[in-house]
Design a protein around this nucleic acid. Structure first.
Lengths: 350, 350
DNA sequence: TTGTAAGCGTTATCAA
DNA sequence: TTGATAACGCTTACAA
């Protein structure tokens, strides 16, 4: 069967360790040891290197993985490759690459069915570890994977009580600071566009907002708390409604950058000015906000650090730290002050 | 050896097809046939399904891949996850996912050494196919992979003469059209910021620019052709120099969006206006250009179509089209007219 | 329709 | 240090 002639002039199948061993005149065990960095007699080493070059041999990681149970692939499950995830991915890919691994990416588009498929896919592919935005819908599958020894890291959103590692940012504190800043600037009528309240990050950001107001003795106004569901379009409409109130807010806190863009869109369409007619702060900083005419004040997640921390968590988990208890890493966010927030007269904000 | 007790309460290792067969009281061949959709006797099927559920069994794709030589992974090699690639990746991930595969992503940061590592990594991982931005530096490795039967798709930039599939956009024609549009608006002094001339896309865009000028009898001015190397910072400096010329250009064509941003940066810093002081067209359309105050006229690559075409090319290659000759798919670009290009008096532009 | 067993390309064990 | 060989978990003839 192996006699089937190969047409097209090219040797089809990649060569194997057996080919290399034959070419070099040594046993396959010797080649394997060479490949894995064990000591080899000088002469044999040269033979093997020559054979590898001649055959353009590349180790078959699939076969190796079967023995070692190590695929050198990290599963990454993200909702989409929006600006936020793209930057995170960039940093993560780089930092994972340095450990000799690569990312197997799956994008679930916020479809819970696809999230399940993704988890199955990763289980099937036997990725060495998994990084994902925690979503309560797939708790069972996640627990199964953890039970089978798959290291999992949650970021962004949590699934409470699951014994996995976590890399989170100080959502509550950062929002608290941002809203306090608005208060310092004289704002009293401050609205928030919240994310999807199923997500822990949305809840924590709302808590930070409420705490900041309460601390300064500002009564919360339910009209100022709008469910934006993370979406730009909702934020666009919400801005319209907020500004139509009898007492419109003088400032809006957008719980993510997409909703901040929705706010900007409405303001632009109405020929209203940020910050003259409305101050705006966004959770998440994106390139657009830096390049925007006045600049948008934003909470910047430390994306590069998130990536690094994830990677070192992974390395420790995949090294000798497999049995350590789950760890949660909390990272601070910076508030980048730009032109979208302005001081207003105390009277105007009451 | 298998007797080693497992601590921690959880069954560590994932279960295997053998476990399922034992649990269900059938042979492993039967389980395998069930998994692969072959007909199974009703009773056995129920037994197997129950066993799979009980053991939360997931097929080990690593072992399967060893037999079938199919990993269901597509390698994707990109320079970075900038805005352009992020959107492409989003579409590609979705469209690849529908075929039951996922993307193994590697980011080379324009480092030729890392590009080589990436190709080795993909070879080692035995991805089913590879999508990459063509770069002449790795021609040898690419040819080796092709010789071993790995389907490869180039996008964006070509490696001439290599028998791979290609998905390209009409760089030349789109640039020609864009520049012609500037001429139609009365511009005569039109500058171009070129990309890195090692890249075929940069060369073709320059050709389109030159052809458009020549066709309208406008003499090319070498001072107006600036090597921007795709980089924002270079474009920033180049804009300064161009506008300092005795006869400064009235319009700039930026060969990619990064350089267009550099131009905008300089204009903003100098309190100069686009389009009043300078018209601007960018190759590549990004979210920023839509949201920009006046809007930036841009050439939009059909990213979703690129992703679809790549995927169908892949599917055909991995199906029965393995022996087909290499195909090149050329896609048209749209020119999105926005506010950054304005009509000028014919006299002003001469 | 099912059971049995060979084999995919490695790694790892064991003698030599 | 090396060679020979038994796994790893699956697919796929082949025989029943």
């Amino acid at each position: 069967m192996d006699e089937t002639p190969v047409y097209g002039g090219a040797k089809k199948r990649p060569s194997t360790i057996t080919d290399v061993a034959a070419e070099a005149g040594v046993a396959i065990g010797t080649v394997s040891r060479y490949l894995n960095g064990f000591p080899i007699r000088r002469g044999n080493r040269d033979q093997i290197e020559a054979a590898i070059a001649k055959l353009s041999y590349r180790r078959n990681a699939v076969a190796a993985a079967m023995k070692t149970d190590l695929t050198h692939m990290i599963g990454l499950l993200v909702p989409s490759f929006d600006e936020f995830h793209a930057v995170m991915l960039e940093d993560l890919a780089r930092s994972v690459r340095k450990t000799g691994r690569a990312l197997l990416t799956y994008c679930h588009s916020n479809d819970r069915r696809i999230m399940g498929e993704a988890l199955d896919f990763f289980a099937t592919q036997r990725v060495d570890a998994l990084i994902m935005d925690g979503a309560p819908e797939v708790r069972d599958r996640v627990e199964t994977l953890l039970g089978q020894g798959m290291p999992i890291i949650f970021y962004n959103n949590d699934i409470q009580g699951v014994p996995a590692d976590r890399v989170m940012v100080e959502n509550r504190m950062a929002t608290h600071r941002a809203v306090s800043h608005l208060i310092d600037l004289g704002h009293r009528r401050i609205a928030i566009l919240t994310g999807d309240m199923h997500d822990s990050s949305a809840r924590l950001r709302l808590e930070g907002y409420q705490a900041a107001l309460a601390e300064r003795g500002i009564a919360g106004n339910p009209e100022y708390v709008v469910d934006g569901d993370w979406k730009s379009e909702n934020a666009y409409q919400a801005t319209r409604q907020l500004l139509a109130l009898a007492k419109p807010p003088t400032a809006i806190f957008a719980s993510n950058y997409g909703m901040a863009i929705g706010v900007l869109g409405w303001m632009k369409d109405q020929h209203l000015s940020v910050p003259d007619d409305l101050s705006l702060i966004s959770f998440d900083d994106v390139a657009l906000f830096r390049l925007h005419e006045v600049g948008i004040t934003a909470i910047a997640q430390p994306l590069a650090r998130i990536a690094d921390v994830m990677t070192s968590l992974l390395v420790s988990r995949l090294g000798d730290g497999a049995e350590l208890p789950a760890r949660t890493m909390m990272l601070d966010c910076d508030i980048i002050l730009r032109g979208s927030t302005r001081r207003i007269a105390a009277s105007a904000g009451s």
